[in-house]
Design a protein around this nucleic acid. Structure first.
Lengths: 208, 208
DNA sequence: GTGACAATGGACCAGTAGGTCCATTCTGGC
DNA sequence: GCCAGAATGGACCTACTGGTCCATTGTCAC
Protein backbone atom coordinates (compact mmCIF):
# COMPACT_ATOMS: atom_id res chain seq x y z
CA UNK A 1 0.00 0.00 0.00
CA UNK A 2 1.36 3.41 -0.97
CA UNK A 3 1.96 6.12 1.58
CA UNK A 4 -0.87 8.44 2.48
CA UNK A 5 -0.41 12.08 3.36
CA UNK A 6 -2.73 13.71 5.86
CA UNK A 7 -4.67 15.15 2.96
CA UNK A 8 -4.87 11.70 1.48
CA UNK A 9 -6.27 10.07 4.59
CA UNK A 10 -8.82 12.85 4.87
CA UNK A 11 -9.98 12.30 1.32
CA UNK A 12 -10.15 8.60 1.82
CA UNK A 13 -12.23 9.02 4.94
CA UNK A 14 -14.51 11.43 3.13
CA UNK A 15 -15.08 8.89 0.38
CA UNK A 16 -15.86 6.06 2.76
CA UNK A 17 -18.29 8.13 4.76
CA UNK A 18 -20.21 9.44 1.79
CA UNK A 19 -20.21 6.02 0.18
CA UNK A 20 -21.54 4.49 3.39
CA UNK A 21 -24.53 6.78 3.47
CA UNK A 22 -25.28 6.25 -0.19
CA UNK A 23 -24.98 2.49 -0.10
CA UNK A 24 -26.98 2.24 3.10
CA UNK A 25 -29.80 4.16 1.53
CA UNK A 26 -29.78 2.60 -1.91
CA UNK A 27 -28.03 -0.72 -1.62
CA UNK A 28 -24.79 -1.87 -3.18
CA UNK A 29 -26.26 -2.59 -6.58
CA UNK A 30 -28.22 0.63 -6.51
CA UNK A 31 -25.19 2.80 -6.00
CA UNK A 32 -22.76 3.35 -8.85
CA UNK A 33 -19.20 4.54 -8.57
CA UNK A 34 -20.35 7.63 -10.39
CA UNK A 35 -22.89 8.31 -7.65
CA UNK A 36 -20.15 8.04 -5.09
CA UNK A 37 -17.85 10.22 -7.13
CA UNK A 38 -20.52 12.88 -7.40
CA UNK A 39 -21.50 12.51 -3.75
CA UNK A 40 -17.97 13.13 -2.57
CA UNK A 41 -16.82 15.68 -5.10
CA UNK A 42 -13.92 13.50 -6.10
CA UNK A 43 -12.81 12.02 -9.35
CA UNK A 44 -12.90 8.52 -10.63
CA UNK A 45 -9.17 8.09 -10.35
CA UNK A 46 -9.25 8.90 -6.65
CA UNK A 47 -11.71 6.13 -6.01
CA UNK A 48 -9.30 3.64 -7.50
CA UNK A 49 -6.31 5.37 -5.98
CA UNK A 50 -7.60 4.80 -2.47
CA UNK A 51 -9.44 1.58 -3.20
CA UNK A 52 -7.35 -0.31 -5.75
CA UNK A 53 -9.75 -3.23 -5.69
CA UNK A 54 -12.54 -0.98 -6.91
CA UNK A 55 -16.06 -1.30 -5.68
CA UNK A 56 -15.36 -4.45 -3.72
CA UNK A 57 -12.71 -2.68 -1.65
CA UNK A 58 -15.01 0.22 -1.07
CA UNK A 59 -17.84 -1.99 0.08
CA UNK A 60 -15.48 -3.85 2.35
CA UNK A 61 -14.35 -0.60 3.94
CA UNK A 62 -17.78 0.87 4.40
CA UNK A 63 -19.15 -2.33 5.86
CA UNK A 64 -16.45 -2.09 8.46
CA UNK A 65 -17.18 1.53 9.18
CA UNK A 66 -20.87 0.93 9.47
CA UNK A 67 -20.34 -1.98 11.79
CA UNK A 68 -18.22 0.13 14.10
CA UNK A 69 -20.85 2.86 14.08
CA UNK A 70 -23.62 0.45 14.97
CA UNK A 71 -21.58 -1.33 17.60
CA UNK A 72 -20.50 1.94 19.18
CA UNK A 73 -24.09 3.08 19.44
CA UNK A 74 -24.84 0.05 21.59
CA UNK A 75 -22.12 0.70 24.09
CA UNK A 76 -21.59 0.40 26.92
CA UNK A 77 -24.45 -2.11 27.14
CA UNK A 78 -23.14 -4.35 24.41
CA UNK A 79 -20.05 -5.19 26.42
CA UNK A 80 -21.85 -5.75 29.68
CA UNK A 81 -24.90 -7.83 28.87
CA UNK A 82 -24.64 -9.56 32.23
CA UNK A 83 -27.89 -8.40 33.76
CA UNK A 84 -31.45 -8.00 32.62
CA UNK A 85 -31.10 -4.28 33.20
CA UNK A 86 -28.26 -4.20 30.71
CA UNK A 87 -30.39 -6.02 28.14
CA UNK A 88 -33.11 -3.43 28.57
CA UNK A 89 -30.59 -0.66 28.13
CA UNK A 90 -29.23 -2.41 25.09
CA UNK A 91 -32.67 -2.65 23.57
CA UNK A 92 -33.21 1.06 24.06
CA UNK A 93 -29.86 2.02 22.61
CA UNK A 94 -30.53 -0.04 19.48
CA UNK A 95 -33.91 1.55 18.97
CA UNK A 96 -32.51 5.00 19.63
CA UNK A 97 -29.66 4.56 17.19
CA UNK A 98 -31.78 3.40 14.30
CA UNK A 99 -34.50 5.92 15.04
CA UNK A 100 -31.96 8.68 14.69
CA UNK A 101 -30.84 7.44 11.26
CA UNK A 102 -32.10 9.44 8.32
CA UNK A 103 -33.48 6.40 6.55
CA UNK A 104 -34.48 3.04 7.93
CA UNK A 105 -32.97 -0.17 6.84
CA UNK A 106 -30.62 -2.79 8.00
CA UNK A 107 -27.24 -2.06 6.57
CA UNK A 108 -25.40 -5.21 7.39
CA UNK A 109 -28.16 -7.74 7.14
CA UNK A 110 -29.61 -6.43 3.93
CA UNK A 111 -26.19 -5.93 2.41
CA UNK A 112 -25.23 -9.51 3.12
CA UNK A 113 -28.42 -10.75 1.61
CA UNK A 114 -27.93 -8.65 -1.48
CA UNK A 115 -24.31 -9.66 -1.99
CA UNK A 116 -24.80 -13.34 -1.38
CA UNK A 117 -26.12 -13.84 -4.88
CA UNK A 118 -23.59 -11.79 -6.79
CA UNK A 119 -20.43 -12.00 -4.72
CA UNK A 120 -20.48 -14.77 -2.14
CA UNK A 121 -16.92 -14.11 -1.04
CA UNK A 122 -17.59 -10.49 -0.21
CA UNK A 123 -20.90 -11.49 1.32
CA UNK A 124 -19.10 -13.85 3.65
CA UNK A 125 -16.80 -11.06 4.76
CA UNK A 126 -19.71 -8.80 5.52
CA UNK A 127 -21.46 -11.66 7.26
CA UNK A 128 -18.41 -11.87 9.47
CA UNK A 129 -19.30 -8.50 10.89
CA UNK A 130 -22.73 -9.81 11.76
CA UNK A 131 -21.17 -12.79 13.47
CA UNK A 132 -19.06 -10.45 15.52
CA UNK A 133 -22.12 -8.48 16.55
CA UNK A 134 -24.00 -11.63 17.44
CA UNK A 135 -20.94 -12.76 19.35
CA UNK A 136 -21.37 -9.94 21.84
CA UNK A 137 -24.88 -11.10 22.60
CA UNK A 138 -23.75 -14.67 22.99
CA UNK A 139 -20.85 -13.65 25.23
CA UNK A 140 -23.23 -11.82 27.53
CA UNK A 141 -25.53 -14.80 27.71
CA UNK A 142 -22.64 -17.12 28.38
CA UNK A 143 -21.60 -14.97 31.31
CA UNK A 144 -25.16 -14.91 32.59
CA UNK A 145 -25.28 -18.68 32.41
CA UNK A 146 -22.03 -18.93 34.33
CA UNK A 147 -23.37 -16.51 36.92
CA UNK A 148 -26.43 -18.66 37.37
CA UNK A 149 -28.82 -16.11 35.99
CA UNK A 150 -29.91 -18.48 33.26
CA UNK A 151 -31.30 -21.94 33.64
CA UNK A 152 -28.56 -24.54 33.51
CA UNK A 153 -29.99 -26.09 30.34
CA UNK A 154 -30.16 -22.78 28.47
CA UNK A 155 -28.03 -22.60 25.35
CA UNK A 156 -26.37 -19.20 24.88
CA UNK A 157 -25.73 -19.82 21.20
CA UNK A 158 -29.33 -20.63 20.38
CA UNK A 159 -30.62 -17.77 22.50
CA UNK A 160 -28.24 -15.30 20.87
CA UNK A 161 -29.20 -16.55 17.44
CA UNK A 162 -32.88 -16.05 18.14
CA UNK A 163 -32.36 -12.61 19.65
CA UNK A 164 -30.21 -11.50 16.77
CA UNK A 165 -32.75 -12.83 14.29
CA UNK A 166 -35.45 -10.76 15.95
CA UNK A 167 -33.25 -7.72 15.71
CA UNK A 168 -32.47 -8.21 12.05
CA UNK A 169 -36.03 -9.04 11.18
CA UNK A 170 -37.27 -6.03 13.09
CA UNK A 171 -34.91 -3.83 11.14
CA UNK A 172 -36.00 -5.37 7.86
CA UNK A 173 -39.64 -4.68 8.60
CA UNK A 174 -38.84 -1.23 9.95
CA UNK A 175 -37.24 -0.45 6.64
CA UNK A 176 -40.12 -1.61 4.49
CA UNK A 177 -42.76 -0.11 6.77
CA UNK A 178 -40.85 3.05 7.52
CA UNK A 179 -41.62 2.81 11.19
CA UNK A 180 -39.85 2.02 14.43
CA UNK A 181 -42.67 -0.15 15.65
CA UNK A 182 -41.59 -3.46 14.12
CA UNK A 183 -38.14 -3.08 15.63
CA UNK A 184 -39.52 -2.27 19.05
CA UNK A 185 -42.03 -5.11 18.96
CA UNK A 186 -39.39 -7.56 17.78
CA UNK A 187 -36.89 -6.61 20.46
CA UNK A 188 -39.48 -6.65 23.22
CA UNK A 189 -40.60 -10.10 22.19
CA UNK A 190 -37.01 -11.26 21.98
CA UNK A 191 -36.36 -10.09 25.52
CA UNK A 192 -39.45 -11.87 26.76
CA UNK A 193 -38.21 -15.08 25.19
CA UNK A 194 -34.80 -14.49 26.70
CA UNK A 195 -36.21 -13.94 30.16
CA UNK A 196 -38.14 -17.16 29.89
CA UNK A 197 -34.76 -18.86 30.11
CA UNK A 198 -34.00 -17.05 33.35
CA UNK A 199 -33.15 -18.96 36.48
CA UNK A 200 -36.48 -19.58 38.22
CA UNK A 201 -38.28 -21.92 35.85
CA UNK A 202 -41.53 -20.05 35.69
CA UNK A 203 -42.07 -20.26 31.97
CA UNK A 204 -41.76 -23.58 30.34
CA UNK A 205 -39.72 -23.99 27.22
CA UNK A 206 -41.11 -25.74 24.23
CA UNK A 207 -38.97 -28.73 23.42
CA UNK A 208 -38.81 -30.36 20.07
CA UNK B 1 -53.46 -7.64 -23.09
CA UNK B 2 -53.24 -9.75 -26.21
CA UNK B 3 -54.78 -13.19 -26.40
CA UNK B 4 -52.70 -16.13 -25.27
CA UNK B 5 -52.86 -19.57 -26.83
CA UNK B 6 -52.29 -22.62 -24.68
CA UNK B 7 -48.76 -22.72 -25.93
CA UNK B 8 -48.40 -19.10 -24.96
CA UNK B 9 -49.58 -19.55 -21.43
CA UNK B 10 -47.25 -22.50 -21.03
CA UNK B 11 -44.29 -20.45 -22.19
CA UNK B 12 -45.24 -17.61 -19.93
CA UNK B 13 -45.48 -19.92 -16.95
CA UNK B 14 -42.14 -21.45 -17.81
CA UNK B 15 -40.55 -18.02 -17.88
CA UNK B 16 -41.98 -16.98 -14.53
CA UNK B 17 -40.96 -20.19 -12.86
CA UNK B 18 -37.39 -20.14 -14.10
CA UNK B 19 -37.10 -16.43 -13.36
CA UNK B 20 -38.37 -17.02 -9.85
CA UNK B 21 -35.69 -19.55 -9.09
CA UNK B 22 -32.97 -17.37 -10.57
CA UNK B 23 -34.02 -14.19 -8.82
CA UNK B 24 -34.52 -15.98 -5.52
CA UNK B 25 -31.01 -17.31 -5.70
CA UNK B 26 -29.22 -14.27 -7.01
CA UNK B 27 -31.39 -11.29 -6.26
CA UNK B 28 -33.14 -8.92 -8.63
CA UNK B 29 -30.08 -6.88 -9.42
CA UNK B 30 -27.97 -9.97 -9.75
CA UNK B 31 -30.16 -11.51 -12.40
CA UNK B 32 -30.14 -10.07 -15.91
CA UNK B 33 -32.77 -10.57 -18.55
CA UNK B 34 -30.14 -12.47 -20.45
CA UNK B 35 -29.77 -14.90 -17.57
CA UNK B 36 -33.48 -15.46 -17.59
CA UNK B 37 -33.53 -15.83 -21.34
CA UNK B 38 -30.79 -18.44 -21.16
CA UNK B 39 -32.37 -20.17 -18.18
CA UNK B 40 -35.65 -20.63 -19.96
CA UNK B 41 -34.46 -21.32 -23.46
CA UNK B 42 -36.49 -18.44 -24.79
CA UNK B 43 -35.62 -15.33 -26.72
CA UNK B 44 -35.49 -11.75 -25.66
CA UNK B 45 -38.58 -10.85 -27.63
CA UNK B 46 -40.64 -13.41 -25.73
CA UNK B 47 -39.73 -11.85 -22.44
CA UNK B 48 -41.16 -8.56 -23.60
CA UNK B 49 -44.01 -10.24 -25.41
CA UNK B 50 -45.31 -11.76 -22.21
CA UNK B 51 -44.13 -9.00 -19.90
CA UNK B 52 -44.53 -5.73 -21.79
CA UNK B 53 -43.33 -3.77 -18.81
CA UNK B 54 -40.00 -5.53 -18.93
CA UNK B 55 -38.14 -6.55 -15.84
CA UNK B 56 -40.54 -4.77 -13.50
CA UNK B 57 -43.46 -6.80 -14.79
CA UNK B 58 -41.47 -9.97 -14.46
CA UNK B 59 -40.46 -9.20 -10.90
CA UNK B 60 -44.04 -8.36 -10.07
CA UNK B 61 -45.22 -11.69 -11.44
CA UNK B 62 -42.59 -13.78 -9.76
CA UNK B 63 -43.09 -12.08 -6.43
CA UNK B 64 -46.71 -13.08 -6.65
CA UNK B 65 -45.88 -16.64 -7.57
CA UNK B 66 -43.35 -16.97 -4.81
CA UNK B 67 -45.78 -15.59 -2.27
CA UNK B 68 -48.38 -18.13 -3.26
CA UNK B 69 -45.84 -20.92 -3.01
CA UNK B 70 -44.75 -19.87 0.45
CA UNK B 71 -48.27 -19.32 1.69
CA UNK B 72 -49.45 -22.65 0.32
CA UNK B 73 -46.63 -24.43 2.11
CA UNK B 74 -48.00 -23.12 5.40
CA UNK B 75 -51.48 -24.39 4.90
CA UNK B 76 -53.69 -25.48 6.44
CA UNK B 77 -52.12 -24.04 9.60
CA UNK B 78 -51.88 -20.50 8.28
CA UNK B 79 -55.65 -20.22 8.02
CA UNK B 80 -56.38 -21.76 11.38
CA UNK B 81 -53.96 -20.20 13.82
CA UNK B 82 -56.55 -20.40 16.57
CA UNK B 83 -54.79 -22.79 18.89
CA UNK B 84 -51.27 -23.25 20.17
CA UNK B 85 -51.19 -26.60 18.43
CA UNK B 86 -51.82 -24.83 15.14
CA UNK B 87 -48.96 -22.42 15.83
CA UNK B 88 -46.65 -25.35 16.45
CA UNK B 89 -47.77 -26.95 13.22
CA UNK B 90 -47.26 -23.67 11.43
CA UNK B 91 -43.75 -23.36 12.75
CA UNK B 92 -42.92 -26.86 11.53
CA UNK B 93 -44.41 -26.26 8.11
CA UNK B 94 -42.37 -23.09 7.66
CA UNK B 95 -39.16 -24.82 8.63
CA UNK B 96 -39.97 -27.78 6.42
CA UNK B 97 -40.73 -25.60 3.43
CA UNK B 98 -37.55 -23.59 3.56
CA UNK B 99 -35.44 -26.61 4.41
CA UNK B 100 -36.63 -28.24 1.21
CA UNK B 101 -35.63 -25.26 -0.90
CA UNK B 102 -32.47 -25.67 -2.91
CA UNK B 103 -30.92 -22.50 -1.59
CA UNK B 104 -31.64 -20.59 1.56
CA UNK B 105 -32.75 -17.05 1.62
CA UNK B 106 -35.76 -14.94 2.22
CA UNK B 107 -37.30 -14.20 -1.12
CA UNK B 108 -39.85 -11.62 -0.18
CA UNK B 109 -38.07 -9.88 2.65
CA UNK B 110 -34.72 -9.64 0.94
CA UNK B 111 -36.31 -8.64 -2.33
CA UNK B 112 -38.19 -5.79 -0.70
CA UNK B 113 -35.07 -4.58 0.97
CA UNK B 114 -33.13 -4.69 -2.26
CA UNK B 115 -35.77 -2.91 -4.29
CA UNK B 116 -36.50 -0.19 -1.77
CA UNK B 117 -33.44 1.73 -2.83
CA UNK B 118 -33.80 1.46 -6.57
CA UNK B 119 -37.54 1.17 -7.17
CA UNK B 120 -39.63 2.18 -4.19
CA UNK B 121 -42.89 1.73 -6.05
CA UNK B 122 -42.17 -1.85 -6.95
CA UNK B 123 -40.77 -2.41 -3.46
CA UNK B 124 -44.05 -1.26 -1.98
CA UNK B 125 -45.94 -3.74 -4.14
CA UNK B 126 -43.73 -6.58 -3.02
CA UNK B 127 -44.03 -5.39 0.57
CA UNK B 128 -47.77 -5.74 0.12
CA UNK B 129 -47.29 -9.47 -0.16
CA UNK B 130 -45.46 -9.44 3.13
CA UNK B 131 -48.29 -7.51 4.72
CA UNK B 132 -50.73 -10.12 3.49
CA UNK B 133 -48.62 -12.88 4.98
CA UNK B 134 -48.36 -11.04 8.27
CA UNK B 135 -52.08 -10.46 8.13
CA UNK B 136 -52.73 -14.19 8.45
CA UNK B 137 -50.75 -14.29 11.68
CA UNK B 138 -52.55 -11.26 13.02
CA UNK B 139 -55.93 -12.70 12.07
CA UNK B 140 -55.18 -15.86 14.00
CA UNK B 141 -54.11 -13.89 17.05
CA UNK B 142 -57.19 -11.73 16.83
CA UNK B 143 -59.38 -14.81 16.88
CA UNK B 144 -57.43 -16.21 19.81
CA UNK B 145 -57.97 -12.99 21.68
CA UNK B 146 -61.69 -13.11 20.96
CA UNK B 147 -61.79 -16.72 22.12
CA UNK B 148 -60.14 -15.74 25.38
CA UNK B 149 -56.94 -17.63 24.71
CA UNK B 150 -54.89 -14.48 24.95
CA UNK B 151 -54.74 -12.04 27.80
CA UNK B 152 -57.24 -9.26 27.32
CA UNK B 153 -54.53 -6.64 27.09
CA UNK B 154 -52.61 -8.48 24.38
CA UNK B 155 -52.28 -6.64 21.10
CA UNK B 156 -52.57 -8.94 18.08
CA UNK B 157 -50.93 -6.41 15.79
CA UNK B 158 -47.82 -6.02 17.90
CA UNK B 159 -47.60 -9.74 18.52
CA UNK B 160 -47.94 -10.52 14.83
CA UNK B 161 -45.33 -7.93 13.98
CA UNK B 162 -42.85 -9.41 16.42
CA UNK B 163 -43.50 -12.96 15.28
CA UNK B 164 -43.16 -12.02 11.64
CA UNK B 165 -39.95 -10.14 12.37
CA UNK B 166 -38.50 -13.24 14.00
CA UNK B 167 -39.46 -15.25 10.96
CA UNK B 168 -37.89 -12.83 8.50
CA UNK B 169 -34.79 -12.38 10.59
CA UNK B 170 -34.46 -16.11 10.99
CA UNK B 171 -34.63 -16.52 7.23
CA UNK B 172 -32.06 -13.78 6.72
CA UNK B 173 -29.61 -15.45 9.06
CA UNK B 174 -30.39 -18.87 7.63
CA UNK B 175 -29.42 -17.54 4.25
CA UNK B 176 -26.13 -16.05 5.32
CA UNK B 177 -25.22 -18.96 7.55
CA UNK B 178 -26.54 -21.65 5.23
CA UNK B 179 -28.25 -23.44 8.04
CA UNK B 180 -31.73 -24.07 9.30
CA UNK B 181 -30.75 -23.42 12.88
CA UNK B 182 -31.30 -19.65 12.97
CA UNK B 183 -34.77 -20.06 11.56
CA UNK B 184 -35.67 -22.74 14.07
CA UNK B 185 -34.25 -20.80 16.98
CA UNK B 186 -36.01 -17.61 15.90
CA UNK B 187 -39.38 -19.29 15.49
CA UNK B 188 -39.11 -21.16 18.78
CA UNK B 189 -38.28 -17.95 20.60
CA UNK B 190 -41.13 -16.17 18.85
CA UNK B 191 -43.58 -18.82 19.99
CA UNK B 192 -42.32 -18.56 23.55
CA UNK B 193 -42.93 -14.82 23.47
CA UNK B 194 -46.35 -15.43 21.97
CA UNK B 195 -47.29 -17.92 24.66
CA UNK B 196 -46.29 -15.46 27.31
CA UNK B 197 -49.35 -13.49 26.24
CA UNK B 198 -51.56 -16.49 26.83
CA UNK B 199 -54.60 -16.30 29.05
CA UNK B 200 -53.70 -17.00 32.65
CA UNK B 201 -51.05 -14.42 33.55
CA UNK B 202 -49.98 -15.95 36.82
CA UNK B 203 -51.70 -19.31 36.82
CA UNK B 204 -50.02 -22.45 35.64
CA UNK B 205 -49.22 -22.55 31.94
CA UNK B 206 -51.31 -25.04 30.05
CA UNK B 207 -49.52 -28.16 28.97
CA UNK B 208 -48.83 -28.68 25.31
C1' DG C 1 -56.56 -24.28 -47.15
C1' DT C 2 -56.08 -19.87 -45.76
C1' DG C 3 -55.62 -15.79 -43.42
C1' DA C 4 -55.20 -13.22 -39.04
C1' DC C 5 -52.62 -13.11 -35.41
C1' DA C 6 -49.85 -15.28 -31.70
C1' DA C 7 -45.17 -17.12 -30.92
C1' DT C 8 -40.45 -16.96 -31.72
C1' DG C 9 -35.52 -15.76 -33.02
C1' DG C 10 -32.10 -12.74 -32.81
C1' DA C 11 -29.84 -8.54 -34.61
C1' DC C 12 -29.58 -4.22 -32.97
C1' DC C 13 -29.46 0.12 -29.98
C1' DA C 14 -28.48 3.61 -26.49
C1' DG C 15 -27.21 4.10 -21.80
C1' DT C 16 -24.44 3.02 -18.08
C1' DA C 17 -21.63 0.13 -15.38
C1' DG C 18 -16.90 -0.73 -13.51
C1' DG C 19 -12.38 0.09 -14.57
C1' DT C 20 -7.82 1.97 -17.02
C1' DC C 21 -4.69 5.54 -18.20
C1' DC C 22 -2.08 9.52 -18.49
C1' DA C 23 -1.28 14.33 -17.83
C1' DT C 24 -1.29 17.75 -14.38
C1' DT C 25 -1.09 19.75 -9.76
C1' DC C 26 0.05 19.56 -5.00
C1' DT C 27 2.99 18.15 -0.56
C1' DG C 28 6.54 17.62 2.29
C1' DG C 29 11.25 16.03 3.60
C1' DC C 30 15.71 17.45 2.48
C1' DG D 1 13.94 25.62 -3.78
C1' DC D 2 13.83 21.03 -5.37
C1' DC D 3 11.92 16.91 -6.69
C1' DA D 4 10.04 12.14 -5.73
C1' DG D 5 5.97 10.70 -5.11
C1' DA D 6 1.20 11.46 -3.62
C1' DA D 7 -3.23 13.64 -5.09
C1' DT D 8 -6.27 14.82 -8.60
C1' DG D 9 -9.01 15.50 -13.04
C1' DG D 10 -11.20 13.57 -16.54
C1' DA D 11 -11.07 11.39 -21.15
C1' DC D 12 -11.50 6.96 -22.54
C1' DC D 13 -12.41 1.79 -22.99
C1' DT D 14 -15.00 -2.47 -22.95
C1' DA D 15 -18.64 -5.29 -21.25
C1' DC D 16 -23.09 -5.69 -20.43
C1' DT D 17 -27.61 -3.81 -19.23
C1' DG D 18 -32.65 -3.26 -20.25
C1' DG D 19 -35.15 -2.55 -24.13
C1' DT D 20 -36.72 -2.12 -29.41
C1' DC D 21 -37.69 -3.94 -33.84
C1' DC D 22 -38.66 -6.69 -37.61
C1' DA D 23 -38.66 -10.95 -40.11
C1' DT D 24 -40.01 -15.65 -39.74
C1' DT D 25 -42.60 -19.59 -38.08
C1' DG D 26 -46.49 -21.76 -35.86
C1' DT D 27 -51.54 -22.06 -34.57
C1' DC D 28 -56.22 -22.30 -35.11
C1' DA D 29 -61.07 -20.72 -36.30
C1' DC D 30 -63.50 -20.61 -40.30
Amino acid sequence: MAMLTSKGTATRARIVEAATDLVLARGVGGTSLNDIRAGTGTSKSQLFHYFPGGKRDLVRALAGLQTERVLDAQRPFLDTLDTWEAWDGWRDSVVAHYSSQPSWGCPIGAMTSELIGSDPVLAAEVAGHMDRWRGYLQAGLTRMLAAGRLRADADPETLALATFASLQGGLLLAQSMQSAKPLEAALDAALIALRSAAQPPSARRRAR
